[in-house]
C-alpha cells in the first residue's frame, strides 16, 4: 500500500490517538505518547506490524497517542492508510 496523499485519522480524546500520514521518499515513524515511557516499545511494535502487513515502504508516519489500546491503534492506522491510498 502506498501513502499517496496527506491524511489524518483519529482524535485527541483520552484512550485514542491521532495518525498523520504524508508521502515521503523514505519511511519514517515518529511516536509521541503520554504513556511513551511505559508502552512506547509496544506501540512502536504494533505500528510496525500494521505497516508491514500493508506493505508500506515509504511515507512519513506521525502518531500522537493518549493511551490507546492495541486494536484502536490498528484501526486508526488502517483507516489513515486506506484514506492515504485512495486516488
Amino acid at each position: 500500500m502506498k501513502i499517496a496523499r496527506k491524511v489524518q485519522a483519529g482524535t485527541m480524546q483520552s484512550s485514542d490517538l491521532m495518525v498523520f500520514l504524508e508521502p515521503a521518499e523514505t519511511l519514517t515513524v515518529t511516536i509521541d505518547s503520554t504513556v511513551l515511557k511505559q508502552f512506547g516499545e509496544l506501540i512502536r511494535a504494533k505500528v510496525d506490524e500494521v505497516l508491514r502487513r500493508h506493505h508500506v515502504e515509504s511515507g512519513e508516519v506521525r502518531i500522537t497517542d493518549r493511551g490507546a489500546l492495541d486494536y484502536a491503534i490498528e484501526a486508526r492506522l488502517e483507516t489513515a492508510l486506506f484514506r492515504a491510498a485512495e486516488e
Binding site: 496527506k6 489524518q8 482524535t11 485527541m12 480524546q13 483520552s14 491521532m18 498523520f20 506521525r62
Partner: peptide
C-alpha cells in the same frame, strides 16, 4: 469531559490539511 479534546482535534486536523504540521 472531552469537549476540549474534540475542539483541538478539529483545529489540528484542519490545520494539518492546510499544510501545517
Amino acid at each position: 469531559g472531552s469537549l476540549l479534546d474534540d475542539i483541538v482535534t478539529v483545529l489540528v486536523g484542519r490545520g494539518y490539511q492546510e499544510g501545517l504540521d
